[in-house]
Amino acid sequence: MSVTLPDLPYAQDALEPHISANTLSFHYGKHHQAYVDNLNKMIAGTPHDGASLEAIVTESAINSDMQGVFNNAAQIWNHTFYWHSMSANGGGKPTGKIAELIDRDFGSYDEFKSAFAAAGATQFGSGWAWLVLKGEKLEVRKTANADTPLTEIGVTPLLTMDVWEHAYYLDFQNKRPAYIETFLDKLVNWDFANQNLAAA
């Protein structure tokens, strides 16, 4: 069974005016779809044909001969996680368990916000900013290109923000910091983070 493009968790115009339907039509409909198409071509007739996406990501991450497979599989996983990391009613300070842990591990929401924004702004070139649980403690991470904390033992991804230019360029042009601020103030889905925390 081939890997399929998962449905968006909302309509393509649901994040407007912050992320436009035009951006999602390209980002989801073209970029995300291309990773799915490329991966299916690469794994056709191999032992990975029919494996779960998570298994393909973790197994290809440790095999230097499978860099192309990893790049496409990890980007499918990262993008799917990113769509769920945003909500039409998102943004602002968290509530629930994630709020407690942010205060405990960063000192305050504002300190977390500064660290997360810095991770996104200082990721040179393409990549991702993450909030993860490592052991019992929250950490902010940044990864380049398709790299993902999914491959790290003992690390649970809770949220991600895409900082590849195609994530924001149609709406924000070269203003990555404005996109990051909008993500945190208007879009970030704390319910999703709490769900991932509860499942960790």
Rank of each mutant, 00 (worst) to 15 (best):
S108G: 06
M1N: 06
Y10E: 04
I19T: 03
Q123L: 07
G154W: 01
S108E: 02
E152Q: 14
A146S: 15
D7E: 15
L53I: 15
M66E: 15
K41H: 04
G92M: 05
D185W: 01
E54P: 03
F112G: 12
D105T: 13
A118W: 05
A121H: 08
L101E: 05
G135V: 03
S64K: 13
W128E: 12
F112T: 08
S25R: 05
P177R: 02
G154R: 10
K137I: 03
S114E: 09
H31S: 04
W77I: 02
T95G: 14
K30R: 10
A51P: 11
V163F: 01
K97G: 07
A51D: 14
A88S: 13
I180K: 11
A121V: 06
S87A: 08
G45A: 06
A178D: 15
E111G: 03
P6Y: 00
A200C: 08
D171R: 05
I56P: 11
S52C: 09
L184A: 03
G135P: 10
D103Q: 11
M66N: 10
A55I: 10
T122Q: 15
Y169Q: 11
D103I: 04
Q12T: 09
A193I: 13
A146L: 00
D49F: 00
D147Y: 12
D191V: 09
A44L: 08
K97D: 14
S87Q: 02
I98K: 12
P47C: 14
L138F: 00
T122Y: 02
F183C: 09
Y168H: 10
T122W: 00
F26C: 05
I62G: 09
F192A: 04
I43M: 07
S85P: 08
Q75N: 15
F183L: 06
Q75H: 10
Y168R: 10
A118I: 05
A55S: 13
G127E: 05
A200K: 12
K93Q: 08
P177E: 10
T182A: 05
D185M: 07
N78A: 14
G90P: 12
H31D: 04
N189H: 13
